[in-house]
Design a protein around this nucleic acid. Structure first.
Lengths: 338, 338
DNA sequence: TTGAAAGCGCTAACAA
DNA sequence: TTGTTAGCGCTTTCAA
């Protein structure tokens, strides 16, 4: 058997039909223990592996799921990917990587992969739906898709998320509790929903504490290290710079701290900084970053579990699962210098 | 057309045979421009997508590749994944994620996915071959596999790597040039090859400079943040602690710097630290980490290109591509205090 | 409990 | 340039 053995080869050697082999291999109870055993032995001996394309064609499933993110290079997705992968694996699913780079065309491409049988379902972390194709009327909401992290309001997909508003508010309240009054915000790429929510949480906390937000205290970033630096430059060009900064993600917080240090400001001595996400390096950062911890692995696992439910036909009523966050208070925040 | 249209549907509407449709859709020149155009229009109209399982079954290719790493959660792989993904995409390949968690069984599983048609080729970054199955004699070396980062000497796979020995040596020479004499090494998980090579580079540099390595100056870590910390504890329990540390990767360097700071040592004032990898955060670290830069995205692209060559039948003679590294000198190294 | 046979949707060899 | 036809390897009726 130099070529790849197929079911037929096993059938011939076992002196049974291909149907029996197929049944035996799939653990059907319609086969005597004896023949089942013989077939399994033969399969092992021939080093048989079922051809997935043939099986997929016949069963109309690929046993693959598609994980679509904005940027595979972003470390934020790591633990999520890990959670998805582990849960998928357990259920016998492979994970295909999708990377949109925020390109709508690529988004469409991945939806198409769903339709062409490349994958059975999709976990979407890009907050957008591809624009309707001309002459096309695909009912998106009927597709096996779970949205994680982001929000897509137009279709009725299940969502897995965190409460960004509450988490951001909580983070800012921590600064306020420390005694800060002049608190600035380095926002994400507004008007994206997640960035907006975190900004709204900041505003809510300030408002609830009766603190006004001076002009120029809200700076727009794009979640990257570099913008953390440039935003700090903007903030400290103000006549009254802040004593604390809430950054919409950890990367910008890193950049902000870096820039503060270069400007000669001690963190947290002169300026406190809070991040969002709790990247795995935040605790090793100097100073260790106070930040909002997201249960990323859990987000991945939950999203995949939801998808598995859908794929197994259990019609869940498009639930929205909100997972808890926690503020990890570390060394980058302290009371303001008086 | 509520159901998924197939080639047959298009053929009927276009009044041609399925073969013609297939040809037109695959851009064969054996079709008149006119019919090709009509068919393409019809396809768009019906929102047709070819069924990949059927195509894969027929063509015996999956147009997927498998990217197998030790740990999907490790940020080190990010840029590599990005490079692989981009190159794969361009060539029309999808990328399947494989995660072994250093489990040999899972390694076997991924080799099997290659054999069962799940993927056409594999990029392996795990430095091991699965043990031969009993009664089995698969000629591994004939499989379309490219090894990146790691080394597998037993099979004749193409490799994409960096010169770990030279790069490590170069890093240590930098410390020596600064005037350091007591230089310690936090190694990776010896006796793994990469860890060994980096250790050997350290030894070579020390040796070439006529410097001896005191007992206890080589500490074994496992590439994790935490061991960077514990290893520093060990080094500074010595009667003569080092004035410089070469860590086998950035994560351990982060941990080391963290621990040094807690022990009251200034970096680089009291102790210089060099890392290896140049993770994307190393430049934002405090102090910015002096470290060996690996061309990770390029490693990914090159590995995928090599794999594409193999898949297209161009038999490359198992080349080993060695990509250049560069020492990024930043703020974590300085001359020793006198 | 097993076997025969149909067919998943596509591509490609062969014929016209 | 197009059509006819035979599978790719598997699962699953239906019949025995």
């Amino acid at each position: 058997m130099s070529e790849r053995p197929k079911i037929k080869d096993i059938a011939e050697r076992a002196g049974v039909s291909v149907a029996t082999v197929s049944r035996a291999l799939s653990g059907s109870s319609l086969v005597t223990d004896e023949t089942r055993k013989r077939i399994h032995e033969l399969a092992r001996e021939l080093n048989y592996r079922p051809n997935v394309s043939a099986r997929n064609l016949r069963t109309r499933r690929s046993m693959s799921v598609l994980l679509v993110v904005r940027d595979v290079g972003n470390p934020f997705y790591l633990d999520i990917l890990k959670g998805v992968e582990a849960t998928a694996r357990e259920a016998g699913y492979a994970v295909l990587m999708g990377n949109t780079e925020n390109d709508p065309d690529r988004e469409v491409e991945y939806f198409n992969m769903l339709r062409d049988g490349h994958a059975d379902g999709m976990i979407l972390m890009t907050g957008k739906l591809p624009a309707q194709q001309p002459g096309e009327s695909v009912d998106f909401s009927s597709l096996p898709v779970v949205v994680a992290l982001e929000m897509i309001e137009t279709a009725g997909f299940p969502h897995v998320q965190i409460d960004n508003i509450a988490a951001a508010r909580h983070a800012v309240e921590h600064l306020i509790a420390l005694g800060h009054r002049r608190i600035a915000h380095i926002a994400g790429p507004l008007p994206e929903l997640m960035a907006t929510h975190r900004r709204d949480g900041y505003r809510a906390a300030m408002d609830a504490a009766g603190l006004s937000i001076p002009d120029g205290y809200e700076v727009r970033g794009d979640y990257l290290l570099e913008t953390g630096e440039t935003c700090v430059a903007q903030l400290f060009a103000l006549s009254e710079p802040p004593t604390a900064i809430f950054a919409a993600n950890d990367e910008m917080a890193y950049g902000a701290i870096h820039a503060l240090r270069r400007l000669g400001h001690d963190v947290p001595g002169d300026v406190s900084v809070v991040g969002f996400d709790d990247l795995y390096l935040s605790k090793a950062f100097y100073p260790p970053l106070t930040t909002v911890s997201q249960p990323r692995a859990d987000i991945g696992r939950t999203a995949m579990s939801l998808l598995l439910n859908i794929l197994s036909g259990e019609d869940i009523a498009a639930p929205t699962v909100v997972l808890p966050t926690a503020l990890s208070v570390r060394g980058s925040t302290a009371p303001p210098r008086r």
